[in-house]
Simulated assay, not measured.
Amino acid sequence: MKTLISKEAPYFKANAVLNGKDIVNDFTIQQYKGKKYVILFFYPKDFTFVCPTEIYAFQNILPSFEKRNTQIVAVSTDTEYSHWTWLQMPKKNGGIHGVTYPIVSDINKTISYNYGVLSGFWNCDCNNNSVKIEGKGELVAYRGLFLIDKKGIIRHILINDLPLGRNVKESIRMIDALQTFEKKGEVCPANWNIGEKTMKANHEGIIDYLSS
């Protein structure tokens, strides 16, 4: 499997719901290039159980992302109308009312496929000059997450299987690590958090711990 790390984030233009209510048909993350970092995360389905816990987890700490000049964008293979309906439902009824960041429709499965998070696969049966294409397994998105820098380059990837909810706060730590590296040219060791010591190689190739 080829990795997208250090490569330009695959382009897409798709239908999406903005601000929890506005449907648009030309949403693209390229609008943030040169301006903001992006956390692009995929989830399997609307109207499910684990997915709203993740969606609200991002919303609950949205100010922390905004403080770091980072835009949150969600994607699933549902339609924009499914997203919109779910966004109108109160949380107590299983909805995600109150979520304000963009939620993108990947109804054609192409975004999930290009980012390497589409579960299942297509099977092509070619026989007697005819072609039969069918899906094997459920063609929904795994719980993928991509940290994209202001140049549009993917710097961090996390992909969970469908039953495994992700740790949203880890996204904050990774943004802090990336921004610290960009600012100081110093790298961040295991379990590093903002304010802790960073690392830098000296002329002899020895790693020194520095005060952040």
Rank of each mutant, 00 (worst) to 15 (best):
M174N: 15
I175L: 13
I175K: 04
I175A: 06
L164F: 15
C188Q: 09
V187H: 12
K197C: 13
G195M: 06
W192L: 05
I175D: 10
V187Y: 15
P189V: 01
P163Y: 00
P189L: 06
F181G: 01
I175F: 09
K169I: 08
E170R: 01
K183V: 03
Q179N: 05
I172D: 02
L164Y: 12
D161R: 05
M174F: 12
R173Q: 14
W192C: 04
D161A: 01
V168A: 00
I172S: 00
R166E: 07
I175V: 09
D161F: 04
E182V: 02
I159E: 12
G185H: 02
K183Q: 13
P163D: 03
L162F: 07
N167D: 15
T180F: 11
A190H: 11
V168C: 01
A190R: 13
A177L: 01
E182L: 03
S171K: 02
P163H: 00
D176R: 04
N167V: 07
C188A: 04
A177G: 01
P189Q: 06
T180G: 06
C188W: 04
G185S: 01
E196F: 15
A177Q: 00
V187R: 10
G165W: 04
P163L: 00
V187W: 12
E182F: 00
L158G: 08
A177M: 05
E186M: 09
D176S: 02
G195T: 02
N193M: 14
I172K: 08
V187A: 11
K197H: 09
N191W: 10
L164E: 11
D176H: 03
N193H: 15
M174K: 13
I175M: 10
L162C: 06
I194Y: 13
K184T: 12
G195Q: 07
K184R: 13
L158I: 10
I172C: 04
A190D: 09
E170W: 06
A190W: 12
E186N: 13
E186K: 14
M174T: 14
I172Q: 05
Q179F: 02
K183L: 11
V187I: 13
L178A: 02
P163N: 05
K197Q: 15
I194N: 14
D161C: 03
T180C: 10
N160T: 03
G195Y: 08
C188H: 01
I175G: 03
E186G: 05
F181W: 15
G165M: 07
V187Q: 10
A177N: 04
A190V: 10
T180M: 10
R166T: 00
